[in-house]
């Protein structure tokens, strides 16, 4: 396990000067993930906050090769770069011992929604790539519209709360499980609040042969509407309430990487965030109950899967 001090001394692959919001979780995630391999790394980035904020021509914050082509195709774009790498290696135009790693990155919109097909295809075809989803639960770049990762009860601009609505009504898509169901060697869920766990997972993802998927909860003070100074506490609350369990699926085996000693009530997660404010009105009490019930069920199910994997 790398020490924080050693990691801090590694050259930054995404440098300062980008335009991401104060308290944004993306640079936090990038700092850790981009350090998890020492091999040359090429990134394909979906349209979204990270892409827009880091490459305003004629400047770039990327200290490695990086490509953006569109919103829904980071997975197929990086698969293309990787295919070229395989071809040139076979043809002898890239030295046999030269290792390059390939990372596709998208937000939850570019991954859970519009990019799901491309991602599924790339995973199924077995490209030697890592795909990282930074899941901030919304289309943040375009002003906070709902995605299929937006949680129940959150007010997003296309699922706003109102006199007749408690915000988003539908359950989140469980993308990590969807990816694991592809039978890929490695899929994991992590949070920047627990950087060591995130680092280990990213390292594993880069090391496995074949496709790997990382789903990382991403703080978004702008759309979640909380005091950005308290971001890391919120990230910790996400795992302590089991809203965002830390687990990995390695060759089909589920493993929970962190179990809160005492599961916190869901309100600890909901309360600090403006996007859930309306849920604390009397008429929405049942929504909070629903959320708690669903989180409990999901946590139970995850434990069942992990227990089952242990017995195997």
């Amino acid at each position: 396990m790398a020490k924080l001090k050693d990691l801090a001394q590694m050259e930054d692959r995404l440098v300062a000067g980008h335009g991401m919001c104060l308290g944004c979780g993306i640079p936090l995630i990038m700092k850790i993930v981009l350090r998890a391999t020492e091999d040359p790394l090429i990134v394909a980035n979906a349209t979204g906050c990270l892409e827009v904020c880091t490459t305003i021509f004629p400047r770039t914050s990327w200290n490695i090769s990086w490509v953006h082509s569109a919103f829904e195709n980071a997975a197929s774009t990086i698969a293309g770069v990787e295919s070229m790498y395989q071809a040139l290696k076979k043809k002898g135009r890239i030295p046999q011992d030269k290792k390059v790693k390939f990372l596709g990155i998208g937000g939850d919109g570019g991954t859970y929604d519009i990019g799901l097909q491309a991602l599924s295809g790339a995973m199924e075809r077995g490209h030697d790539i890592v795909y990282l989803c930074y899941d901030n639960n919304a289309y943040a770049n375009t002003g906070g519209q709902r995605s299929s990762a937006t949680p129940v009860g959150a007010s997003a601009t296309t699922s706003p709360s109102g006199t007749q609505s408690p915000g988003k009504l539908q359950r989140r898509k469980d993308l990590t499980k969807v990816m694991a169901a592809h039978g890929i060697p490695y899929a994991a869920q992590a949070s920047p609040g627990r950087w060591k766990d995130l680092y280990n997972k990213a390292k594993k993802a880069f090391e496995v042969e074949g496709p790997a998927f990382l789903n990382v909860l991403c703080l978004c003070p702008t759309e979640w509407k909380y005091d950005e100074a308290k971001g890391l506490q919120l990230a910790q609350d996400a795992v302590d309430t089991c809203v965002w369990p830390l687990y990995e699926v390695e060759n089909g085996k589920y493993k929970i990487n962190y179990k809160p000693r005492k599961k916190k009530p869901i309100t600890e997660w909901l309360k600090p965030q403006g996007r859930f404010r309306h849920l604390f009105k009397e008429e929405n009490a049942s929504v909070i109950q629903r959320i708690q019930k669903e989180i409990d069920e999901e946590w139970e199910e995850l434990n069942r899967l992990a227990g089952f994997s242990q017995q195997k």
């Binding site: 082509s69 197929s76 698969a79 770069v81 070229m84 040139l88």
Partner: peptide, 21 residues
């Protein structure tokens, strides 16, 4: 590479071509 759609086929071409070949 036989991807899952033409959109991805062209995206792969774009990734591959920017890879250099």
């Amino acid at each position: 590479v036989c991807p899952e759609s033409e959109h991805s086929a062209m995206s792969l071409c774009i990734g591959a071509a920017s890879g250099g070949g």
